[in-house]
Design a protein around this nucleic acid. Structure first.
Lengths: 218, 218
DNA sequence: AATAACATTCTTGTATACAAAGCCCTTGAC
DNA sequence: GTCAAGGGCTTTGTATACAAGAATGTTATT
């Protein structure tokens, strides 16, 4: 059942780029990478095409593929867009979310609190991600959900670093409570604002963000 | 200087799909298309990879590429997302737009009015697109600008049909005035709301939208 | 006559071969 | 000594060849 190697390759390459295995501007050698993955250049090139479209790499004709790590300005803009998308999710979800999903949010928050008590950053990160994905899902708009999830993934390494900052987990937790409260009340504006500020927190502090960039690059 | 045929091909294929040259579910035969464009399967496949990522076609392993024309529910969701993105653009632009750009918006509106007076739908469409792109640009967020422009392009054929509806151009025009007023006043909430309702108008009327779908498919 | 199994054919996925454009190093001229 | 031009070397872009899975049609059996 060996099929669609390009899928695996693009996923693995994406992971490598996210991990900071490549620095900004690094050229991706097709033959070297093909050898590394044990395939020919054909599926590898197809994978590169896809990564280029998501902006992870830049494909310069006759020159090659160059990785594009986001700089400070890029990250600020990406977090700002993330805040807008999540605000939209909240706005729409306020009118559309089901009681069952609200319960799920509550459960996710309890898990988050447990992770904080245990001082487990990774676990908090996972639960936090689940919390947000529930809201994306219940925006009732699959395109919005998809865009939000994609950007969320893209910002993953930087967000993770942010959580390690002193007191951030606890503050994040309090914001979660406010978000759920707005959704339970069914107030679109309040939900949008709560989510916007929650996400904006992560991209807002320039100094912290820069530290996260450096750490993510290792 | 013949290079990157995949670029041209994906652009042309995209145009063909937008034009409604293919029905939903049609399979894109690689060899036939390759022959049609006068290239081999290799660059054509790279083009297909890219179209698959934007959702225009679905790539089923070992089965082929199938065009995915948006259905009624898809269009409603896409217009809703468009409304959210434009609202975000307006919200951010309210604080960031320059006086020069506000002048440009005013000029665009004058042109729109001229197009209405002349009864020229195509011209109105072009000027209207310019109007919106100015706002995308002055959101001050290139990622948001890019997303908005991309979705705008995707919805182009459906939006165009909408303009032919009775009185829509005039109403659209009035909404433009309200948008500019909010931006001039520098009121983020008002600008966001004005843009949201303006765009939502286009996707809001289910019956009209369905007619647009049929017409766009020709 | 209907159905299932098999074979043929068609199509996709991958590898390899070839062509052309860019890069780098050498060499020559000033 | 420096700079420019030219050639080879590398690498990308494309075509073609090959392998394997899916679709289809045929035949045999019940």
């Amino acid at each position: 059942m060996v099929q669609r190697r390009a899928d695996n390759i693009s996923a693995k390459l994406e992971e490598l780029i996210f991990n900071g295995s490549f620095a900004d501007g690094d050229r991706l050698d097709e033959v070297r990478l093909a050898a590394h993955f044990g395939v020919s250049r054909t599926p590898l090139r197809e994978a590169l095409q896809r990564l280029a479209l998501t902006g992870l790499i830049e494909l310069i004709p006759r020159r090659g593929a160059f990785v594009r790590q986001p700089g400070a300005a890029d990250l600020l803009e990406m977090f700002e867009l993330m805040a807008e998308l999540e605000a939209s999710c909240g706005r729409l979800a306020a009118a559309r979310i089901s009681d069952a999903a609200l319960d799920d949010l509550h459960v996710a928050n309890v898990e988050c609190q447990a992770a904080i008590d245990a001082g487990d950053v990774d676990r908090y990160y996972t639960e936090n991600e689940g919390f947000h994905r529930i809201i994306y899902r219940h925006s009732g708009n699959r395109f919005l959900e998809q865009e939000a999830a994609r950007l969320h993934d893209r910002l993953k390494p930087f967000r993770r670093q942010q959580l390690r900052l002193r007191g951030r987990m606890k503050q994040s937790m309090a914001e979660h409570e406010a978000i759920v409260a707005a959704l339970v009340a069914g107030e679109p504006l309040a939900a949008a604002e709560a989510l916007r500020t929650h996400v904006a927190q992560q991209g807002g502090k320039f100094q912290d963000l820069m530290a996260a960039v450096r750490n993510a690059a290792e």
